[in-house]
Nucleic acid binder design. Structure first.
Lengths: 199, 199
DNA sequence: CCGGTCGATGTCAGCTACTGCCATCACTAT
DNA sequence: ATAGTGATGGCAGTAGCTGACATCGACCGG
């Protein structure tokens, strides 16, 4: 619990500052070093200079540490839909949301890739990721309904948007490089259009 | 552990037969009666006349009891795709898979509805459901690739198919009645076509 | 008929995620 | 000073899940 570790010189309280941030960093490190399952919450807390009990005061469970950004991403998507001209078709509102998400997520490529490696290696984490994506779909559908889009169109457009998101993100993480995320989002959406057009 | 409970008159082995089936039934009953979280594995085992340890020999975890049919559903979808004429477009192969799934799931409406009520009431169960659907999407994509469909088309078509599946199934469970599942599958697919056509 | 193997279950000990309850201790407002 | 507040520690307890070993009937070769 020494302040020197963090390099901190102003007056401080009873405890080191930024407990949540230290827990998050410690968890990420350990998940990468040993894997998610092989890491206990006690170990995370110890590395952060805190106790197990405190970890669970900051994070609902051991997985949630990896999904901090989900809420802000959801906000971003919803705002993008809401900010689209009222005359736009649902699919264009979705496209705007995907563009916004791609622009934000497109930065910090390496940390995203590392995070995705951890998640992909563990079924429990994949489950959590999927329910976060489902939550995004629900939020997108609600945003569309707020613009007067009816069911089942709203739900379908939202689910389709998330499908495009998933595929584009997957390609972006896997590819050695070159194309950036917003471009892959556009390409994947065009691909979906092409695929559904037939028949 | 009396045989009379089951009504069984031929020579029997050391234990009552169909341990797995008894566990499944006991679990379903308890999940409906008290809810998933309020049910312990020890209670399930007791009702089935077995021990907790035996439960975990038959089911990987407490949730898995509710997802027994996932494997056969996946097989059904894959076979439907494989059985489509080689000249069909990807979207038509997906449509065939959805039709097959709709036909099979469309029966036993009440039990499906009951099961869905239990799942919807619990986030852990929703997570498990989502990863099963993701597994279906992966299997569908592989089936398409086996027919020569390239990426990212295969992945996108599969994800879009699962999106349609989700929406149609949801509508089918919620609606008071009337339209059957295969019809809702077709309608939802048409709706997706309409939504993506714009823009 | 006999002994050995095998498969399904029981028993028990143990780990770990997660929770509830209360104590502690600095900081702050009055 | 004193009381209140907020973040943390400490501790006991529940429940999901696993590994190791014992048990016992079925089955099979001799």
């Amino acid at each position: 619990m020494s302040a020197a570790v963090i390099g901190y010189d102003q007056a401080m309280g009873r405890w080191e500052p930024n407990a949540r941030g230290r827990l998050e960093q410690a968890a990420l490190e350990l998940y990468v070093e040993r894997g998610f399952e092989q890491t206990t919450v006690a170990e995370i807390a110890q590395r952060a200079g805190l106790t197990e009990r405190t970890f669970f005061r900051h994070f609902a469970d051991k997985r949630e540490v990896l999904f901090q950004g989900a809420a802000s991403l959801q906000e971003l998507l919803v705002n993008a839909v809401a900010g689209t001209p009222a005359s736009s078709a649902p699919i264009d509102a979705i496209a705007a949301a995907l563009a916004a998400a791609g622009a934000v997520l497109g930065e910090r490529r390496e940390s995203a890739r590392q995070r995705q490696t951890v998640i992909a290696a563990n079924p429990e984490l994949r489950e959590r990721e999927l329910i976060k994506l489902a939550s995004l779909a629900t939020a997108l559908a609600n945003a569309l309904r707020a613009r007067g889009v009816r069911d089942p169109t709203a739900g379908l457009a939202a689910e389709a948007g998330i499908a495009v998101f998933k595929i584009a993100f997957e390609r972006w993480v896997e590819e050695s490089n070159q194309r950036d995320l917003p471009l892959l989002m556009r390409e994947s959406l065009d691909e979906l259009r092409a695929v559904t057009a037939g028949g």
